[in-house]
Design a binder for these strands. Structure first.
Lengths: 347, 347
DNA sequence: GTGTTGTGGGACAAAAAACGTCCAACCGGA
DNA sequence: TCCGGTTGGACGTTTTTTGTCCCACAACAC
């Protein structure tokens, strides 16, 4: 860290917290504008008075405007947000944590965003935004992108810029899967990605849970075969990471399945695979979808998951993840991951 | 100013004041250590409680140590002071003021130090220190240095480093002058300079106020002639700037002289010359000493004066000062100077 | 030796600031 | 037109800060 900044912090230890708080508030306003005090205090997890005090200050500094419909970030506020973006990551120790996580998880790129999406839902949007930026930076070289479902993936699609269209992009739903909420299933997300970027989309409508016979039969269908072929040529895989149990419940898995997941000690889930705490596959959903091997040979992989509640799952998944995987997460998750591994080392 | 710093200030407007306050306290402790709360509150012009609150914080930050003899700056504190030195000048707007003063006074170098030596006596030491650093940087090229008297000059001599000796340096008392306090007269100061730096010294013991006849006679003395010769070869002149009236009173000038100084509208005094507000010489002490012309043809000139009470005098002196003059002053004086000239422009 | 002076730290009532919590007035969209 | 959201004002209560003592102690001059 900059020695000047370090000296500043020595002289003003309260600076860091204060800066983080105000930056977070300003950021949340930007993400949710126009927004009022009460809604804001919900999102930021502070009391209304606290929010009021800070927003009064921000307004005096002309960083936000207060209309009757809510508060809005001014141009100056946007400039401040942008100017402080990297600095805030540094001052919060995020850059240091990124380094630690990189070596711990054995991957080349980790991006940690401020705060904890468990506490502040808006952080998810922020994660989504940065994941979107990262993904967009891959577009020039990588055209075939496989995407999975989940609310995290939905957040990314929301933040994809629709400025420059590229009709050579091809988005592939990584799984069939009608089990979950239609808004968050892979097909919907893939369509949304395509819509935002001007690319094309390949969807796959198939139930998640098939019987062995039905599965075998389906795999012989030309449509499905074509998809499996596409998975082989995938340039980028973008996926979330879930907590095994939560996902299983969401999917209304059969009791038999839940039992296998539980007894296998499954911790995390990603693109239909369940992993135990050592990163071994203990179960996979029997459906048409991208295979683990196909994921691992993809040139680029973006794993996106935030919130301290996902720390164990992330840790589990990365036990055996491909080294070319990039992790985009948040402070809460990162902190918890390091906490967990430190304790393990001490014992 | 750094755009990052600007953004920080936007988000934390209280930062600047707080930083300045704590930095100042830390600086004062360093200058006066070991020092107690009560003495410190006197120097810093704050209440004891205020000082206590801040020193408690500084102690928690391990920037100072509290012994029973008083508070002391720790090594870490020294590092912080050093790291923040330039930053504080920038954040306090001193760098901007330096630029303004440079163009206003028509000189190439202005150095402004924090705070006001009228309020905080310790600031004088700080001015002295920086003037000493500046002077030392001239030593390699400039060997013949003429110095005047005064408390400001005494402050410089205190801060001269005695690390590397240079016996080719030659210090010349710029004036005879037994009129003032022996500790602050040019001869003493010159000796002190020489002692600190390892150089030699040329002193000149002569009363300040001579009759016309005695003056003429003295000027024909070989010792005096030699001095006048030396003045011609001076490489650097270091001098203070005083308020005309104060100096006149200190010197116990005759009523006739005081009258001439008053009626001439003298505002400032430097090396025995009195200047009016337009920078014209209205009177000079009849004694052996460096001539104005000799000063002005010197390759380097350091004018050192601080405190808002000296603003008018500084302004007066610089109306006709040589462009190669460097001014070392403090925030209080600089602020007042700009205030005075702004008002004048508005009218 | 011994008294004096300055030190940091503890304590506590008073003053001030921050806080939680209402409410009125207002605007915009259904 | 009404409803749900907004801001800004207000105010009693709580928490923090502030001013001001005192005390035990160490250093220092004598």
């Amino acid at each position: 860290m900059d020695p000047l900044t370090e000296a500043q912090q020595k002289l003003m230890p309260e600076m860091t917290e204060l800066l983080k708080k105000r930056y977070q508030i300003l950021l949340t306003i930007q993400m949710e504008e126009p927004i009022g005090r009460r809604a804001l205090s919900e999102l930021a997890g502070s009391t209304e008075r606290e929010i009021r005090k800070e927003t009064d200050l921000l307004r005096n500094q002309q960083l936000i405007k207060a209309k009757s419909s809510g508060m809005t970030v001014s141009d100056e506020g946007l400039a401040v947000l942008d100017a402080l973006k990297d600095f805030m990551r540094d001052v919060s120790g995020l850059i240091a944590m990124e380094k630690q996580l990189k070596s711990l998880l054995g991957i080349s790129r980790v991006l940690i965003l401020p705060q904890d999406s468990d506490d502040i839902p808006a952080v998810k949007s922020n994660i989504g935004k940065e994941a979107a930026r990262l993904l967009e930076s891959l577009f020039p070289q990588h055209k075939k992108i496989a995407v999975t479902g989940g609310s995290t993936m939905a957040a990314i699609s929301k933040e994809l810029s629709s400025d420059k269209k590229d009709n050579t992009l091809q988005f592939i739903a990584a799984r069939g899967g009608l089990g979950e909420d239609v808004l968050h299933q892979a097909n919907t997300i893939a369509s949304s990605f395509a819509g935002k970027t001007g690319g094309s989309v390949k969807t796959l409508y198939l139930p998640d849970h098939l019987s062995a016979e039905a599965y075998e039969m389906m795999m012989r269908e030309p449509v499905i075969k074509e998809m499996m072929n596409l998975y082989d040529q995938t340039d980028v895989v973008v996926h979330g990471i879930g907590n095994a149990e939560e996902i299983a419940l969401q999917r209304q898995s059969s009791t038999e399945e839940v039992e296998r997941i539980r007894s296998g000690g499954a911790v995390s889930e990603a693109f239909g695979y369940y992993f135990d705490k050592e990163g071994k596959v203990v179960y996979r959903i029997r459906t048409a979808g991208i295979q683990l091997e196909q994921v691992q040979k993809a040139p680029a992989i973006l794993a996106v998951a935030g919130g301290r509640s996902k720390a164990k799952a992330i840790l589990s998944y990365f036990k055996n993840a491909a080294p070319q995987t990039s992790l985009i997460t948040d402070e809460g998750a990162a902190h918890k991951i390091l906490e967990l591994t430190q304790n393990r080392e001490e014992i």
